[in-house]
């Protein structure tokens, strides 16, 4: 009977993880979305100022950061698939890898931000720097929260609770993590690269 179901039935549509988390995710996307759009308006009004600011931005570190987050998302997906297969230790290792990648992102980002402050750049320097600092710090805080959530799930997973039919916790954490990555993809392109 299992074979019959496997061959014909597509997986039924279900929300990955807790619906409440998805409501939260949608709210976060709304805030970031509005922020991006306001950035776009300001940039459209002062293209020269924004271009000048972007020229002084190093690209290597932020690119590495993007790679870190993407690796983190890949690790997160691996973690979820492994838990779904009942492979608990492997799943936990993948969660740990996610946190490693996230930690790398945070370290590099911190280094980058400290560098800016050391150069005397503040929120009041000009519009470009105001957006740069607001967006990157705001996103930074979300990466921190993502790390906390993943760490919590990693810890809870120790007692083997995330069996294939009790995956809610892991999937919920994954959803939040992927949102943080998604936002960064847009942020990276908009603030650092699009010039």
């Amino acid at each position: 009977m299992k074979a019959l179901v496997q061959s014909s039935a597509p997986p039924e549509r279900r929300v990955p993880g807790d619906l409440a988390m998805w409501c939260f995710i949608l709210a976060e996307l709304a805030v970031f979305g509005v922020f991006f759009l306001v950035y776009a308006v300001f940039r459209w009004r002062e293209p020269a100022l924004f271009a000048a600011g972007q020229r002084s931005l190093d690209l290597t570190l932020p690119t590495l950061n993007t790679l870190f987050l993407l690796a983190g998302s890949a690790a997160m997906l691996a973690a979820v698939s492994r838990f779904a297969e009942g492979r608990q230790p492997a799943g936990r290792r993948a969660l740990a890898l996610t946190m490693l990648c996230g930690g790398g992102f945070l370290a590099l980002k911190l280094y980058e931000l400290v560098g800016k402050f050391a150069r005397g750049i503040t929120l009041s320097t000009n519009d470009f720097w105001m957006f740069y600092l607001s967006l990157t710090v705001f996103h930074f805080l979300h990466v921190v929260l993502g790390m906390v959530i993943v760490a919590a799930v990693w810890r809870l997973a120790r007692d083997g609770r995330y069996t294939p039919d009790a995956m809610d916790g892991v999937e919920t954490a994954a959803a939040y993590w992927h949102m943080v990555d998604l936002v960064w993809l847009v942020l990276f392109a908009l603030v650092y690269v699009a010039r």
């Binding site: 709304a30 509005v34 957006f131």
Partner: peptide, 18 residues
């Protein structure tokens, strides 16, 4: 207060009806 509040205040308070 600094002018960036005009941006931040607008963005976040616009979502306060939610």
């Amino acid at each position: 207060t600094p002018a960036y509040w005009q941006v931040w205040g607008s963005i976040f308070s616009a979502l306060e009806p939610i």
